[in-house]
Every structure is written in C-alpha cells, then in structure tokens.
C-alpha cells in the first residue's frame, strides 16, 4: 500500500469518527429536543391555533375560525349595536406590565450589582456562604413568600405598626394593594435572579486589568466603559433578562399584593381561562406577549452582534 492509500484511509477513518461523534451528540441532545418539542413547541402550536377559534360558553373552544380575539385586543364592542370602537384598555395592561417589569429590573440591578460585587470580592469560603444565603428564600414556596410579604406591609402589619410606634408616621402608609406593593413583591421575588448571574460574571473578572488600565492613565469612567462593562456585560444582560421576562408574566404578586384590582399580563391571561372563560382571547393575549418579547430580543441580539468590538 503506498502512502497516498494510507492517507486516504486515514481521512476515511477521520470522517467515520467525525460522523460517529456527531451521531453521539445527536443522541445526547435528543432527550432535551424531545422535551422541548413535546412540552414547548407543541403547546405553543396549540396556543396559536386556539387564538384563532371561537370561545365555548363555559370554557373550551368551538372549532370555528375567528379573528375576534385579536380584534378584541384593540377594539371594544358596543353593548347596543356591536360596533367597534378603539379601546386602549388591553394595551394599557401591557404597558403597565412593561413599566412594572422595567422598574423591577432597574431596581434589582441597582441593589444586585453592589451585592454581587461585594460577594465576588470576598475570600473563597465566605463567598459560598453568601451565595447560599442569597438562595435561602427559594427554599420556601413563592405563594407563601408573597403572602408573608402581604402580612408585613399591610396597614395593620408590623411595618406600619413599627413606624407608627416610633412616631415616624401618624397614619399607616398604604403599601398593600397598590402598584408599589406589587413592585416590592416582584423585586423581592426576582432579586436573586439578578445577583447570581452578576456574581458569576464579576467573579470571573480579572481585577488586574483594572490595575493595568490605571497604569495606562485611564480614568474611572473609561475603565467602567471599556473594561468592566464589556467583560461583565453578558452577566448583566443575563440578569436583566432573567428578571424582566418573568416579571412581565408574573401573576401571584399582582393578584395578592395588588388585590387583583389592576391586572398585569399574567393575570389577564389567567382570567381568560378561569372567570372570563374565553380561551381564544387568553391564547391571543399570550401569543401577542410572546411576539413582543421575541421581537425585543431579536432587535437586541442584532444590535449586539453589530456593535460588538472584537476583544482579541
């Protein structure tokens, strides 16, 4: 056998090996893909299909094609003659939810960043204890945590009682059953989702880079902009997404802490499947929400890939 023959055999073997590895990878991936298909893609398809159907009287759907759900989202039908009039009510719910989620994200970041920074700069052993402490609230069920929060902040609760008894206020501050109360609940619930990714990013950050920048006469602002943010950035983005997206769809906090009076998107959707018995509209509301989030993410990713400065 001459040398070209050996080379050919080798490439053949390489190809077989590569194929085998690919195959193995596909097998390794298949359980996850199967799960995603069965429990994400398929249900999503059902939601999209349902959003174009007609509601049954006591829930469920009637298999008649209808755009009514999407019309209902923007217009209100008159009781008298069924004429359509533009109604921003549902848009307001979406806007309210976006603002609430945005504020939650910003406040979580403002609290979470210093916390994560502090933990990341601690000695190894203390670090782990702090990370553990951050996760402690998660050992308790979300519902119980939210109800506990309600007990703390309500008019006759310990917070107001303490403030009155030290003379700081005369009348109890109304926190429970307000938007502020809902925000408080959301921040409390999602803060760890901000702290943990930030901590992971900051912990990996090499502080010698900061020293080096100082040596090269960079000022603090430049260091923050050119060194810290680009390196910690992915952690910040991950934290913000992990807080923003679940806040947007949250439903326990508005229901309990807001008194169920001002709906957020999550409550609006839940209501359609319970009290209002309008599955198609609930599905449409979910589809609209998903589309909005997806669009925002896509715009973000596109801009990221455009503006990314190669580091190496």
């Amino acid at each position: 056998m001459d040398s070209t023959g050996i080379a050919q055999r080798r490439t053949e073997l390489d190809r077989i090996r590569a194929r085998r590895i690919l195959k193995a990878r596909a097998w390794l991936l298949s359980p996850a893909l199967l799960l995603i298909f069965c429990f994400l893609i398929l249900p999503l398809c059902i939601i999209v299909v349902y959003s174009f159907l007609t509601p049954g009287t006591y829930g469920g759907v009637v298999w008649d094609f209808s755009l009514e759900s999407y019309i209902q989202f923007l217009f209100e039908r008159d009781f008298f003659d069924d004429t359509l009039a533009f109604s921003p009510a549902y848009l307001q719910i979406y806007f309210r939810s976006f603002v609430q989620a945005l504020v939650t994200t910003i406040v979580c970041f403002l609290i979470g960043f210093p916390t994560a920074y502090y933990i990341a700069t601690l000695p190894e052993r203390k670090k782990y204890m702090w990370v553990l402490l951050i996760t402690v609230p998660y050992w308790i069920n979300l519902l119980i945590r939210t109800i506990a929060m309600l007990f703390l902040i309500r008019n006759e609760g310990p917070l107001n009682y303490a403030l009155i008894s030290i003379g700081a206020i005369d009348e109890p501050i109304k926190i429970a059953y307000t938007n502020f109360g809902v925000g408080l609940g959301l921040i409390y619930t999602y803060l760890p989702f901000m702290v943990l990714p930030l901590y992971a990013a900051i912990e990996r950050f090499d502080f010698r880079l900061v020293e080096a920048s100082y040596d090269l006469y960079a000022n603090q602002w430049t260091i923050l902009r050119k060194i810290i943010l680009p390196l910690v950035g992915p952690g910040i983005v991950a934290g913000c997404l992990l807080v923003f997206i679940p806040s947007l769809g949250s439903f326990i906090a508005p229901d309990l802490l807001g008194g169920g009076k001002k709906l957020m998107i999550g409550n609006l959707i839940a209501l359609q499947f319970q009290g209002s018995r309008n599955w198609p509209f609930g599905s449409a509301a979910a589809v609209i929400l998903m589309t909005m989030v997806l669009c925002a993410l896509m715009v973000y990713i596109r801009q990221q890939s455009k503006s990314r400065i190669p580091l190496h």
Partner: peptide
C-alpha cells in the same frame, strides 16, 4: 342562558382589567 353568560363575562373582564 349562553348569551347572558357571555355578556356577563365581558362586563366582568372589563371590570377587572
């Protein structure tokens, strides 16, 4: 009846939103 149930549901949704 069905018609009333649907109308009530509309008022209810309108109230809660």
């Amino acid at each position: 009846n069905d018609k009333v149930v649907k109308l009530y549901d509309r008022i209810w949704t309108n109230l809660l939103k």
